[in-house]
Amino acid sequence: MSASYQGVLWNRQKRIYDFVLWSFIAVYIALFAFLNYRFDPRITPETLFIRATGTLALLMLHVILSIGPLARIDKRFLILLYNRRHLGVSMFLVAGTHGVFNLAQFHSMGNVNPFVSLFSSNMHYTSFINFPFQVLGFFALLILFMMAATSHDFWLNTLTPRLWKSLHMLVYVAYALVIMHVVLGVLQLEHEPTLFGVLLFGLTWVSGLHLYAGWLEGKRDREASHTEGWVAVGTSDDIEDSRAKIVFVGGERIAVFRYNGKLSAVSNVCKHQNGPLGEGKIVDGCITCPWHGYQYRPEDGCAPPPFKEKVSTFKLKMVNGIIYVSPKPNAEGQFEEPLVIG
């Protein structure tokens, strides 16, 4: 929503979010340390810290990857999505600590530079089981770093939302790298089937959630009936006041909003990070994105000044009480007379 850029704005919600988040991080590390010293006090402090940060980062990554699909399944999870990037940056810091500790422990104080050592100690690049797993961790960390570094909205606008989104989709590559880092690394020594089991559970959980959320959305799209040219949306009673109904037309989602006895249709895709505008709400006369609260006027798709984002609008008509939307988008920000409900 920013027309000019400021440092991250800290509101009360963000402070609470971060406080809870870092309490979790502290509690996990403390608990992990306590349990280790109870279970086997012979552990070295370095190993303890490496394992605590490694497992914590992996756990956080699972939570991060779950929030998106969970929010698509149950809207109440949106409250976690809003500050997800804080979670992402914190996870990067935890994973980065893990990486730095490993580099210091395993690769420093030797006869070559630690980074040279990282890539050249284990040269079994053509083997699967002996593959240099730390290199996988390094590239995962590199991706997480790029994501954390570009997490501010300044980068979103500088890189264009499209590129930014693609960059941040690399989180799935990072996830795959991390899974292989664990499988080809510590699990080669700690080869308990239970540990493989819990990793597999995490993988199944994340992919299952994504598949289920995708299936749900597909089902909703298919249910939206459409005929040649204009597409039937339903009756105005189908749409709750200040809310929208989403229809899937020609490969694109359109959000039809009802407010003050009028109807307007806009593209469902928020200009900020592609959030689903149709799951938002009219607040103070503006469509408000459920993800981070960007706003657009329903009649012309423009963000209220001083903001500059624009989404496309769509023509609506009513025949025998059925609302129809034209699949052809107007130009972004083009005014479209709202349809008055008779």
Binding site: N11, R12, Q13, K75, L78, Y82, P290, H292, G293
Partner: peptide
């Protein structure tokens, strides 16, 4: 209606 949360709401 159903509650709606916007991140910048206090």
């Amino acid at each position: 209606s159903k509650p709606f949360y916007i991140g910048w709401m206090p």
